[in-house]
Nucleic acid binder design. Structure first.
Lengths: 229, 229
DNA sequence: TAGATTGTTAATCGATTAACAATC
DNA sequence: TAGATTGTTAATCGATTAACAATC
């Protein structure tokens, strides 16, 4: 498996292929062409064929790709043919939503542990989880052998939590805190910040927002601290 | 303003610059070099200078960029010098988290309306919002002149909701539903699906997940329907 | 002045697309 | 067979980087 020297932009598309293939399978398709897959994703057929060809020859001329087999291949390539246990730090409104989210399990992930620093939250149940004291983060992560972490804390806490996760053996972090984390280059980091996405859209939408009132966009502090995401 | 023919990849970085500049301002910096900004974002200094030069000459040799002025410029370029009203559809766990999120307002956004189809939710208060019947979506969006929508419904409902939003005048959609939306090319669409990010990381992490038990990754339905995100 | 840093150019690097022989 | 579609090549296209004159 030439898992090295695969362009990052190709890797970033593979999960989209997998997701679309799963929907196709649920619809009853047993084979799918690069053209049809591309249509469903807004990606050109040539792009998809080129990407997949980096990992092997999965298709058949004249008929396309066998859906089930390609799903298996992509799950193997992405290492989601096994389930990854994750740790969540930050059980605010967002953390609670993540704890209740049913979409992780069947796509290869499971939240195993949830932490917060708030004494009023520690020990309480949220869904199937008991919120643990973040003071015990390192010990708990090590004993559960956790490799993936999710951060849903205020931005002000995210860097420290990330460092402690890495100390405890975490190799990949998905952060909802709106701040860039400074971490060793061998640690995988991904970010989710809805405002970033919104601002990418408003660039193209023109000046149609509403006039800002004084306390919404104060000049002295035009961006705010973005806690509790 | 040459707001056209700006590469999309440049546009996608501008919100990151703005966010980092705001933190710098909160730390008391009045000027910042492209090198320092790049260090904080994991982006090369040349990249930042090149990107910004597409919009004007904002810096000064020897000293760098004036933080406050560059923030103003980026907010103008991204059209977040005004506040954008948004509509949210889907008041499940994720929708509630979005309704409680304090990070929108000071970065240029405000949820104005929230909708759901569940009769037990309609009319109930969530934070400062009263959940409205999604049957009234078009009428309410038009009368409030909403241009931005957020979708936090099950994947199975997302396409229909998106089409109805567009019908009602929405020009940009941020979707948390794990499905690609088929919409007119002039509609801006951005997606947030945490599993996509997680799978991008596990590609690099090697085969360290836990063996899947039968009911976690069933062969017959290896991906599941991903509702309620 | 000396040191630092921008804006811009040219070179390098990488990704996407078009086209088509192979073949199912 | 005829039609369809892959895998791959070569060409095009676009983005990043390095370097440096200009200048604060």
């Amino acid at each position: 498996m030439p898992t090295r020297d695969i362009p990052a932009v190709v890797v970033s598309r593979l999960p989209l292929y997998l997701r679309a293939l799963c929907y196709a399978q649920q619809e009853g398709l047993t084979t799918i062409s690069s053209q049809e897959l591309g249509r469903r994703l807004g990606i050109t057929a040539a792009q998809i064929r080129k990407d997949l060809s980096l990992f092997g020859e999965f298709g058949k001329q004249g008929t396309g790709y066998p859906v089930a087999a390609l799903i298996r291949q992509l799950r193997r390539i992405l290492h989601v043919d096994h389930v990854w246990d994750m740790a969540l730090v930050g059980v605010g409104a967002l953390g609670r939503a993540l704890l209740h989210y049913q979409g992780f399990a069947r796509r290869g992930f499971r939240i195993a542990l949830a932490f917060d620093m708030d004494p009023t939250k520690i020990g309480r149940r949220v869904g199937a989880f008991v919120v643990q004291d973040v003071a015990r983060l390192e010990a708990a992560l090590r004993s559960a052998d956790i490799r993936l972490g999710m951060i849903a804390t205020p931005a002000s806490a995210a860097q420290e939590i990330a460092e402690r996760m890495v100390q405890a053996g975490v190799r990949g972090i998905l952060s909802y805190a709106p701040i860039h984390l400074q971490l060793p280059p061998d640690i995988q980091v991904e970010y989710i910040d809805p405002v970033i996405h919104l601002q990418r859209m408003t660039f193209y939408l023109g000046a149609q927002g509403r006039p800002a009132s004084a306390d919404e966009l104060p000049g002295a502090q035009p961006c705010g601290h973005h806690d509790e995401g």
